[in-house]
């Protein structure tokens, strides 16, 4: 280990947290590509972080906890009296209901956005959004980048070869950080989570593939819509539905989907992945 390694190691945790300025992040990435010892140290730190997350998130929440908190909240609302008091009490209760809803949405923000989505999003586009929210946005999986070998292993032989092809189609400021199979709402997905490189690039994009179910189709084979802060682009591919979902603007989203679509279609047609 030399001084370059020492310097990089000082930055590794901030690198994992995507807190480094873009230029430093690139320098670290450059060093990691050439230094297996520091790359191994990065993996160790990422592993500790994942294990720490798993351990804390496995802490059981006592039965009836949420009910008790809500009850306590409701009990603090002043009882209606007369005159100004009644008005104040009514205002307080309205605020309370608003807050509890807000907090409930906070506790389950996926559902809050999906509720907003209903009616504005075709059922087929909703299929992809559900998984994006479940898995990428509300971080069931960590945002730290996994090694390509780990992602290939998570994807298994059917999809592992698709990973480098997708990476090759991404613009320079985006890269795949996680790739795996996942389940949301009882449906199976193959999910590539793509993130912006560098501290100031907070983009999160999902490329999601799921087997088309009978009757599901997109008008004209491709569809796009915006809901909440997300852009959802869906396209049909062989017997799959594919989605690019991001917090980028509509034009950028469509561009990204258009550059990924031929690769995805070609791959799925050639491999007829089961």
């Amino acid at each position: 280990m030399n001084t370059a390694c020492d310097k990089v190691r000082d930055h590794l945790d901030a690198y994992l947290s995507r807190e480094l300025p873009e230029e430093t992040s690139r320098e670290v990435q450059h060093h990691l590509d050439a230094c297996p010892q520091c790359a191994a140290e990065l993996e160790t730190r990422a592993r500790i972080r994942t294990q720490l997350q798993d351990a804390v998130r496995a802490t059981p929440v006592p039965a009836g906890f949420e009910v008790r908190v809500r009850r306590a909240l409701n009990q603090t609302a002043p009882r209606p009296r007369t005159g100004l008091w009644a008005v104040a009490a009514a205002a307080a209760v309205i605020l309370c209901v608003f807050l509890v809803n807000l907090l409930r949405n906070q506790a389950n923000p996926e559902q809050a956005i999906l509720r907003k989505a209903s009616g504005r999003l075709t059922a087929v586009l909703n299929v992809g959004l559900r998984d994006h929210l479940h898995c990428a946005v509300f971080r069931k999986y960590s945002k730290q980048p996994l090694a390509a070998s780990q992602m290939a292993a998570d994807l298994g032989p059917g999809f592992a070869d698709l990973l480098p092809r997708i990476q090759a189609k991404l613009p320079g400021d985006l890269r795949v950080i996680q790739a795996h199979h996942c389940e949301a709402g009882g449906r199976q997905y193959t999910h590539f989570i793509i993130a912006g490189v560098g501290r100031d690039n907070g983009k999160i994009v999902s490329l999601i593939l799921t087997r088309r179910e009978p009757g599901e189709s997109l008008a004209g084979g491709i569809d796009q819509t915006g809901v909440d802060r997300f852009q959802v682009v869906g396209f049909e591919s062989h017997d799959y539905l594919a989605y690019v979902i991001s917090d980028m603007d509509a034009q950028q989203s469509l561009q990204l989907a258009a550059s990924l679509a031929p690769t995805v279609r070609e791959y799925l047609a050639a491999h007829a992945v089961g």
Partner: peptide
């Protein structure tokens, strides 16, 4: 549990 409950009560009070 007490602290989280108090956090929500406090959040309610300082919501404004």
């Amino acid at each position: 549990e007490d602290v989280v409950q108090e956090t929500y009560l406090q959040a309610w009070k300082s919501f404004a």
